[in-house]
């Protein structure tokens, strides 16, 4: 564990807590893409299959349980409890256009052609594009609530911090995982225009409103 990865995990944790607070306090899921949350649930389920078979540390297990628990709770809030406030018309990204290519790529490009490894690779590739339905929804509605912007900033920062973690681990431990790094770079790049909007607007107390 290193400071970059710890900050990354805390940023990820903060993003999930911000999202839950937004939903619980406002009792509304307006502006939140249910499809992205379903993709994140798929990512965590595929990645944490070893939750019960390989024990790394208390921290690792607790975080995995928390991530899986909260993402399914988020889906419950979106599609059941606060279903009336879910904006399905704007959450219209065709996720099959993500899942099929990512699934195919996981079969073709992986570290080892073994079931658990391919499923892990699938979760890495899927995570790098899982935010697209959410970004697409914001571009369609033309705006994002400030709290949603904070959620996205924390979520985007988590993988950017993981990139720093991989640089550190490369020099400190000689650890290098090309698949995770390339997917992490793609994932972080997807947030760049949002980061720009966040820093130029939200940091100055303005709301993010894209030219619809």
């Amino acid at each position: 564990m290193n400071i970059f990865r710890l900050c990354g995990d805390m940023s990820h944790l903060a993003a999930i807590i911000i999202l839950l607070l937004k939903m619980w306090k406002t009792r509304s899921v307006a502006g939140i893409s249910g499809k992205s949350q379903i993709l994140f649930a798929t990512v965590f389920t595929a990645r944490y299959l070893d939750l019960f078979t390989s024990f790394i540390s208390i921290y690792n297990t607790c975080m995995k349980v928390f991530f899986i628990g909260t993402v399914y709770f988020t889906i419950y809030l979106i599609y059941m409890k606060f279903k009336a406030t879910y904006d399905s018309n704007h959450d219209s990204f065709r996720v099959e256009f993500l899942i099929v290519p990512v699934g195919g790529l996981a079969f073709l490009v992986n570290h080892e052609f073994a079931p658990l490894e391919i499923i892990w690779t699938f979760s890495i590739y899927l995570e790098s594009v899982a935010i697209l339905p959410q970004l697409f929804m914001i571009s369609k509605t033309g705006e994002a609530e400030t709290i949603t912007s904070h959620y996205l900033f924390a979520l985007g920062s988590y993988r950017a911090l993981y990139l720093c973690n991989w640089i550190y681990r490369y020099y400190a431990e000689g650890f290098f995982d090309l698949i995770a790094v390339v997917a992490g770079v793609v994932q972080t790049i997807l947030y760049c225009d949002f980061f720009y909007l966040y820093i130029t607007k939200v940091m100055k107390g303005k709301k993010i409103s894209l030219p619809a």
Binding site: D50, Y162, D177
Partner: peptide, 10 residues
């Protein structure tokens, strides 16, 4: 090879 490496990251 990374495959044998235990996945210790979240």
């Amino acid at each position: 090879e990374n495959a044998t490496l235990v996945k210790d990251e979240l």
